[in-house]
């Protein structure tokens, strides 16, 4: 499963990167969101998959999966959410002000 997950992460990374390299702002944001999924899955995979029950002591399992990566991912998800929100608003404000969402036209050497 880890191997499969590694490939999944790789593929998601690939697609995300491809999107980030696009010109349109929206695609870039979507790309970052895909990569964020990939990263979170990778952390989970790197913590080892399915070696026990859910990390809840109330359920009387004999062994538990590694809870630390889960905590890390949780933090990472939240932070990524915050950044995405800001980035989204930033890009739409920029679009409104600059008048284009094409990063190729947002170079900013000409009008200075």
């Amino acid at each position: 499963m880890e191997t499969l997950m590694s490939f999944l992460v790789g593929i998601l990374f690939m697609i995300g990167t491809y999107l980030i390299l696009a010109k349109g702002l929206l695609r870039i944001i979507l790309g970052t969101s895909i990569i964020s999924h990939a990263v979170h899955l990778l952390i989970l995979t790197m913590g080892g998959l399915k070696t026990g029950g859910p990390p809840l002591l109330g359920l009387k399992n004999t062994s538990y999966t590694d809870a630390l990566p889960q905590a890390l991912i949780l933090t990472a998800i939240v932070i990524n959410f915050a950044v995405t929100a800001l980035f989204l608003v930033l890009s739409y404000r920029a679009y409104k002000l600059v008048g284009t969402d094409d990063m190729g036209q947002m170079r900013g050497n000409a009008d200075e």
């Binding site: 979170h40 026990g52 990390p55 999966t65 889960q70 991912i73 949780l74 998800i77 739409y92 409104k96």
Partner: peptide, 28 residues
Amino acid sequence: FRAPDLALTQLVVETVTVALFLLCFYHL
């Protein structure tokens, strides 16, 4: 992969993110 907390968080965050996307779409 036995991560209920993560699943919960991911779901909520995903929904809110999508909602944000929609909110901003009006302008993009």
